[in-house]
Amino acid sequence: MQPELWNYRADVYDVNKSLDIVGYHVEATDGKIGSVDEATYEVGESYIIVDTGPWIFGKKVMLPASTVTKIDPQERKVYLARTKEEIKNAPEFDEATFKESAYRSTLGEYYNRFPFGGGVY
């Protein structure tokens, strides 16, 4: 598992500062996908869980922290370097197993297929 995948980029989030992004709206490169339901900030293990609401029938998705390209506290938005389709096609989120290393490895393999860091807003 590539540790950088599970870290926020240095230009996006300063690990020395406190920021709670739960409730922020989430924007893929091609539009809104939902809002942050949960976020972690541990080095090498950071991710966000997005509640997609009606976009994909109320499902949640887990995204490695490296997919975040920008956090805008004034607008309360998180921007991602992935399209809606890439996010929709990710391995299905499972509330019971998402913290297990096997799921994280599968998710990591999926997101590692895309260029690291993706586009920038």
Rank of each mutant, 00 (worst) to 15 (best):
M1V: 12
Q2V: 15
P3K: 14
P3C: 07
P3S: 14
E4D: 06
E4I: 02
W6Q: 06
W6S: 07
Y8P: 07
Y8T: 06
Y8I: 08
A10G: 13
D11Y: 11
D11K: 09
D11S: 11
D11E: 14
D11F: 09
D14R: 03
N16A: 08
K17T: 04
K17N: 08
S18K: 00
S18M: 00
S18E: 00
V22E: 11
V22W: 05
G23F: 03
Y24F: 15
Y24R: 12
Y24M: 11
Y24W: 09
H25F: 08
V26L: 01
E27F: 15
E27W: 12
A28E: 01
D30P: 02
G31L: 02
K32I: 00
I33V: 04
I33P: 01
G34Y: 04
G34V: 06
G34P: 02
G34N: 03
S35P: 00
V36P: 05
V36E: 01
V36L: 04
D37N: 12
E38K: 14
E38R: 14
A39L: 00
T40K: 07
T40S: 08
Y41N: 06
E42V: 12
E45V: 07
E45T: 13
E45P: 06
Y47L: 14
Y47S: 14
Y47V: 13
Y47P: 10
I48H: 07
D51I: 03
D51T: 02
T52G: 01
T52H: 04
T52R: 03
W55K: 09
I56G: 05
I56S: 07
F57Y: 09
F57H: 11
K59F: 04
K60Q: 08
V61Y: 11
M62Y: 08
M62C: 08
L63I: 14
L63E: 04
L63K: 02
P64E: 00
S66I: 08
S66Q: 09
T67W: 07
T69R: 10
K70L: 12
K70C: 05
D72R: 02
P73H: 00
P73T: 03
P73C: 00
Q74N: 11
R76H: 03
V78C: 07
V78E: 09
Y79H: 15
Y79A: 11
Y79I: 13
Y79T: 09
A81G: 13
A81C: 05
T83A: 02
K84F: 08
K84D: 06
E86C: 02
E86T: 00
E86M: 00
K88H: 06
N89S: 09
P91C: 15
F93W: 12
F93A: 11
D94F: 10
D94S: 13
A96S: 15
T97K: 15
T97H: 13
F98M: 06
F98N: 03
E100W: 14
E100G: 15
E100N: 15
E100H: 15
S101G: 10
S101I: 15
S101N: 13
A102H: 15
A102V: 15
Y103K: 10
R104P: 06
S105Q: 14
T106V: 10
T106G: 10
L107M: 09
E109S: 01
E109M: 01
Y110W: 07
N112T: 13
R113T: 10
R113E: 12
F114G: 05
F114C: 09
F114S: 09
P115N: 12
F116K: 13
G118E: 00
G118T: 02
V120Y: 10
V120D: 09
Y121R: 14
Y121F: 13
